[in-house]
Amino acid sequence: MLELRLTQAGLLKKVLESIKDLVTDANFDCSATGFSLQAMDSSHVALVALLLRSDGFEHYRCDHNISMGMNLGNMAKMLRCASDDDTVTIKADDGSDTVTFMFESPSQDKISDYEMKLMDIDSEHLGIPEAEYQAIVRMSASEFARICKDLGTIGDTVIISVTKEGVQFSTKGDIGTANIICRKNTAVDKKEEATVIEMAEPVSLTFASRYLIAFTKATPLAGQVTISMSYDMPIVVEYKMETMGYMRFYLAPKIEE
Protein backbone atom coordinates (compact mmCIF):
# COMPACT_ATOMS: atom_id res chain seq x y z
CA MET A 1 0.00 0.00 0.00
CA LEU A 2 1.23 3.40 -1.02
CA GLU A 3 -0.33 6.71 0.02
CA LEU A 4 1.46 10.01 -0.45
CA ARG A 5 -0.20 13.32 0.31
CA LEU A 6 1.19 16.61 -0.89
CA THR A 7 -0.53 19.93 -0.11
CA GLN A 8 0.71 21.70 -3.21
CA ALA A 9 -0.29 19.89 -6.40
CA GLY A 10 1.42 22.77 -8.20
CA LEU A 11 4.84 21.43 -7.23
CA LEU A 12 4.18 17.99 -8.72
CA LYS A 13 2.74 19.62 -11.86
CA LYS A 14 5.94 21.67 -12.30
CA VAL A 15 8.08 18.56 -11.76
CA LEU A 16 6.24 16.68 -14.52
CA GLU A 17 6.22 19.61 -16.93
CA SER A 18 9.99 19.91 -16.51
CA ILE A 19 10.82 16.31 -17.49
CA LYS A 20 8.03 15.02 -19.73
CA ASP A 21 9.66 16.26 -22.96
CA LEU A 22 13.05 14.79 -22.07
CA VAL A 23 11.89 11.39 -20.82
CA THR A 24 8.88 9.50 -22.20
CA ASP A 25 8.44 6.65 -19.71
CA ALA A 26 10.06 6.19 -16.31
CA ASN A 27 9.84 4.21 -13.10
CA PHE A 28 8.96 6.19 -9.98
CA ASP A 29 10.61 4.50 -7.00
CA CYS A 30 8.99 4.82 -3.64
CA SER A 31 10.95 4.06 -0.46
CA ALA A 32 11.34 5.35 3.10
CA THR A 33 13.67 8.04 1.70
CA GLY A 34 11.11 9.44 -0.66
CA PHE A 35 9.52 9.44 -4.08
CA SER A 36 12.28 9.35 -6.67
CA LEU A 37 13.00 8.84 -10.32
CA GLN A 38 16.10 8.22 -12.37
CA ALA A 39 15.79 8.11 -16.14
CA MET A 40 17.75 8.74 -19.29
CA ASP A 41 16.53 10.48 -22.42
CA SER A 42 15.96 8.24 -25.46
CA SER A 43 19.46 8.85 -26.84
CA HIS A 44 21.11 8.12 -23.44
CA VAL A 45 23.03 11.39 -23.48
CA ALA A 46 21.24 13.02 -20.53
CA LEU A 47 19.99 11.68 -17.21
CA VAL A 48 17.34 13.03 -14.86
CA ALA A 49 17.40 12.35 -11.12
CA LEU A 50 14.46 13.52 -9.04
CA LEU A 51 14.01 13.21 -5.29
CA LEU A 52 10.94 14.32 -3.35
CA ARG A 53 11.87 13.59 0.26
CA SER A 54 9.36 11.65 2.34
CA ASP A 55 9.40 14.28 5.13
CA GLY A 56 8.35 16.93 2.62
CA PHE A 57 4.97 15.22 2.21
CA GLU A 58 2.08 15.94 4.52
CA HIS A 59 1.46 12.21 4.76
CA TYR A 60 3.80 9.51 3.51
CA ARG A 61 2.97 5.84 3.69
CA CYS A 62 5.03 3.36 1.74
CA ASP A 63 4.83 -0.12 3.30
CA HIS A 64 7.63 -1.51 1.16
CA ASN A 65 9.77 -0.29 -1.70
CA ILE A 66 7.85 -0.20 -4.94
CA SER A 67 8.59 0.91 -8.44
CA MET A 68 5.78 2.26 -10.62
CA GLY A 69 6.25 2.59 -14.37
CA MET A 70 4.49 5.63 -15.76
CA ASN A 71 4.19 7.42 -19.06
CA LEU A 72 5.21 10.94 -18.08
CA GLY A 73 3.11 12.61 -20.78
CA ASN A 74 0.01 10.84 -19.48
CA MET A 75 0.89 11.62 -15.87
CA ALA A 76 1.34 15.30 -16.81
CA LYS A 77 -2.09 15.27 -18.53
CA MET A 78 -3.73 14.00 -15.35
CA LEU A 79 -1.89 16.42 -13.08
CA ARG A 80 -2.90 19.33 -15.31
CA CYS A 81 -6.47 18.60 -14.16
CA ALA A 82 -5.46 19.68 -10.63
CA SER A 83 -5.32 23.30 -9.51
CA ASP A 84 -1.97 24.41 -8.14
CA ASP A 85 -3.32 24.85 -4.62
CA ASP A 86 -5.16 21.51 -4.57
CA THR A 87 -3.91 18.78 -2.27
CA VAL A 88 -2.84 15.74 -4.25
CA THR A 89 -2.82 12.18 -2.93
CA ILE A 90 -1.03 9.45 -4.87
CA LYS A 91 -2.41 6.00 -4.06
CA ALA A 92 -1.57 2.49 -5.21
CA ASP A 93 -2.52 -0.89 -3.78
CA ASP A 94 0.00 -3.73 -3.61
CA GLY A 95 0.21 -5.57 -6.89
CA SER A 96 -2.14 -3.16 -8.63
CA ASP A 97 -1.49 -2.15 -12.23
CA THR A 98 -2.95 1.31 -11.69
CA VAL A 99 -2.15 4.42 -9.65
CA THR A 100 -4.73 6.93 -8.45
CA PHE A 101 -4.25 10.67 -8.19
CA MET A 102 -6.82 12.30 -5.93
CA PHE A 103 -7.17 16.09 -5.98
CA GLU A 104 -8.91 18.02 -3.19
CA SER A 105 -9.65 21.72 -3.46
CA PRO A 106 -8.49 23.90 -0.53
CA SER A 107 -12.09 24.29 0.71
CA GLN A 108 -12.68 20.53 0.33
CA ASP A 109 -15.75 21.17 -1.85
CA LYS A 110 -14.33 19.48 -4.95
CA ILE A 111 -12.72 16.07 -4.87
CA SER A 112 -11.61 14.35 -8.07
CA ASP A 113 -9.80 11.13 -8.70
CA TYR A 114 -7.93 10.02 -11.77
CA GLU A 115 -6.81 6.45 -12.21
CA MET A 116 -3.88 5.87 -14.52
CA LYS A 117 -2.59 2.60 -15.95
CA LEU A 118 0.93 1.65 -14.90
CA MET A 119 3.37 0.13 -17.34
CA ASP A 120 6.28 -2.31 -17.19
CA ILE A 121 9.45 -0.40 -17.92
CA ASP A 122 12.76 -2.10 -18.29
CA SER A 123 15.04 0.64 -17.09
CA GLU A 124 18.68 0.61 -16.14
CA HIS A 125 19.73 2.28 -12.92
CA LEU A 126 23.07 4.01 -13.11
CA GLY A 127 25.38 4.49 -10.15
CA ILE A 128 26.18 8.18 -9.89
CA PRO A 129 29.45 8.58 -7.97
CA GLU A 130 29.79 11.25 -5.29
CA ALA A 131 32.19 13.66 -6.94
CA GLU A 132 34.14 16.73 -5.92
CA TYR A 133 33.52 19.15 -8.76
CA GLN A 134 36.26 21.49 -9.99
CA ALA A 135 33.83 24.35 -10.51
CA ILE A 136 30.40 25.09 -9.06
CA VAL A 137 28.30 28.04 -10.17
CA ARG A 138 25.11 29.17 -8.45
CA MET A 139 23.12 31.73 -10.40
CA SER A 140 19.62 32.94 -11.15
CA ALA A 141 17.64 30.07 -12.69
CA SER A 142 15.71 32.42 -14.96
CA GLU A 143 18.93 34.10 -16.15
CA PHE A 144 20.42 30.71 -17.00
CA ALA A 145 17.23 29.81 -18.91
CA ARG A 146 17.43 33.08 -20.84
CA ILE A 147 21.08 32.49 -21.76
CA CYS A 148 20.46 28.91 -22.96
CA LYS A 149 17.47 30.05 -25.04
CA ASP A 150 19.34 32.99 -26.57
CA LEU A 151 22.48 31.04 -27.43
CA GLY A 152 20.41 28.10 -28.72
CA THR A 153 19.06 30.32 -31.49
CA ILE A 154 22.64 30.94 -32.72
CA GLY A 155 24.54 27.68 -32.28
CA ASP A 156 23.99 23.97 -31.60
CA THR A 157 26.61 23.82 -28.86
CA VAL A 158 27.45 26.00 -25.86
CA ILE A 159 30.89 26.23 -24.28
CA ILE A 160 30.62 26.87 -20.54
CA SER A 161 33.84 28.19 -19.01
CA VAL A 162 34.28 28.94 -15.32
CA THR A 163 37.03 31.11 -13.91
CA LYS A 164 37.38 32.81 -10.53
CA GLU A 165 35.87 35.98 -12.00
CA GLY A 166 32.77 34.46 -13.47
CA VAL A 167 31.14 32.08 -15.89
CA GLN A 168 31.22 32.48 -19.66
CA PHE A 169 28.75 30.98 -22.13
CA SER A 170 29.80 30.98 -25.80
CA THR A 171 28.41 29.65 -29.03
CA LYS A 172 29.20 29.67 -32.72
CA GLY A 173 26.80 29.12 -35.60
CA ASP A 174 26.33 29.78 -39.30
CA ILE A 175 25.23 33.38 -38.68
CA GLY A 176 27.98 34.31 -36.23
CA THR A 177 29.15 33.97 -32.65
CA ALA A 178 27.96 34.98 -29.17
CA ASN A 179 29.59 35.33 -25.76
CA ILE A 180 27.90 36.03 -22.45
CA ILE A 181 29.88 36.60 -19.27
CA CYS A 182 28.17 36.54 -15.89
CA ARG A 183 30.52 37.98 -13.28
CA LYS A 184 30.36 36.72 -9.74
CA ASN A 185 28.12 39.06 -7.82
CA THR A 186 26.64 38.76 -4.37
CA ALA A 187 25.73 42.45 -3.93
CA VAL A 188 22.19 41.99 -5.24
CA ASP A 189 18.73 43.10 -4.12
CA LYS A 190 17.26 39.63 -4.31
CA LYS A 191 19.17 36.58 -3.07
CA GLU A 192 18.21 34.56 -6.15
CA GLU A 193 19.91 37.04 -8.47
CA ALA A 194 23.35 36.34 -6.98
CA THR A 195 26.07 34.66 -9.01
CA VAL A 196 28.37 32.63 -6.77
CA ILE A 197 31.46 30.78 -8.02
CA GLU A 198 33.25 28.05 -6.09
CA MET A 199 36.25 26.95 -8.06
CA ALA A 200 39.26 24.71 -7.46
CA GLU A 201 40.52 25.17 -11.03
CA PRO A 202 39.17 26.69 -14.25
CA VAL A 203 36.94 24.37 -16.31
CA SER A 204 35.72 24.75 -19.87
CA LEU A 205 33.40 22.18 -21.46
CA THR A 206 31.14 21.98 -24.53
CA PHE A 207 27.50 20.88 -24.41
CA ALA A 208 24.63 20.42 -26.84
CA SER A 209 22.35 23.48 -26.53
CA ARG A 210 19.10 21.57 -26.97
CA TYR A 211 19.66 19.52 -23.81
CA LEU A 212 20.54 22.59 -21.73
CA ILE A 213 17.37 24.25 -23.03
CA ALA A 214 15.36 21.14 -22.12
CA PHE A 215 16.74 21.24 -18.54
CA THR A 216 15.60 24.84 -18.09
CA LYS A 217 11.98 23.66 -18.22
CA ALA A 218 12.59 23.11 -14.48
CA THR A 219 13.15 26.84 -13.91
CA PRO A 220 9.77 27.32 -12.13
CA LEU A 221 10.98 24.90 -9.42
CA ALA A 222 13.73 27.13 -8.01
CA GLY A 223 15.03 30.69 -7.91
CA GLN A 224 18.61 29.54 -8.33
CA VAL A 225 20.27 26.84 -10.39
CA THR A 226 23.49 25.10 -9.40
CA ILE A 227 25.83 24.12 -12.23
CA SER A 228 28.66 21.71 -11.32
CA MET A 229 31.47 20.88 -13.73
CA SER A 230 34.67 18.84 -13.83
CA TYR A 231 36.75 17.64 -16.74
CA ASP A 232 35.79 14.13 -17.86
CA MET A 233 32.49 14.29 -15.99
CA PRO A 234 28.91 15.05 -17.03
CA ILE A 235 27.71 18.52 -16.04
CA VAL A 236 25.10 18.62 -13.26
CA VAL A 237 22.34 21.22 -13.53
CA GLU A 238 20.44 21.18 -10.24
CA TYR A 239 17.20 22.84 -9.16
CA LYS A 240 16.69 22.55 -5.41
CA MET A 241 13.11 22.52 -4.19
CA GLU A 242 12.95 24.09 -0.75
CA THR A 243 12.34 21.39 1.90
CA MET A 244 11.21 18.86 -0.75
CA GLY A 245 14.34 17.69 -2.54
CA TYR A 246 15.89 18.25 -5.93
CA MET A 247 15.73 17.85 -9.67
CA ARG A 248 19.15 17.10 -11.16
CA PHE A 249 20.01 16.88 -14.83
CA TYR A 250 23.26 15.26 -15.98
CA LEU A 251 24.62 15.82 -19.47
CA ALA A 252 27.67 14.23 -21.08
CA PRO A 253 30.02 16.87 -22.52
CA LYS A 254 30.89 16.83 -26.21
CA ILE A 255 34.40 15.62 -26.96
CA GLU A 256 36.67 16.98 -29.70
CA GLU A 257 37.66 14.26 -32.15
Binding site: M40, S43, H44, V45, A46, L47, E124, H125, L126, G127, I128, P129, T157, T206, A208, D232, M233, P234, Y250, L251, A252, P253, K254, I255, E256, E257
Partner: peptide
Protein backbone atom coordinates in the same frame (compact mmCIF):
# COMPACT_ATOMS: atom_id res chain seq x y z
CA UNK B 1 34.26 17.94 -35.32
CA UNK B 2 33.08 16.84 -31.92
CA UNK B 3 31.34 13.69 -30.84
CA UNK B 4 28.60 13.21 -28.28
CA UNK B 5 29.32 10.38 -25.84
CA UNK B 6 26.46 8.77 -23.93
CA UNK B 7 25.93 9.22 -20.20
CA UNK B 8 26.44 5.46 -19.75
CA UNK B 9 30.09 5.92 -20.74
CA UNK B 10 30.52 7.99 -17.54
CA UNK B 11 28.22 6.25 -15.07
CA UNK B 12 28.20 2.50 -14.62
CA UNK B 13 25.08 0.39 -14.63
CA UNK B 14 24.02 -0.86 -11.22
Amino acid sequence: GSKQPTITSFFSKL
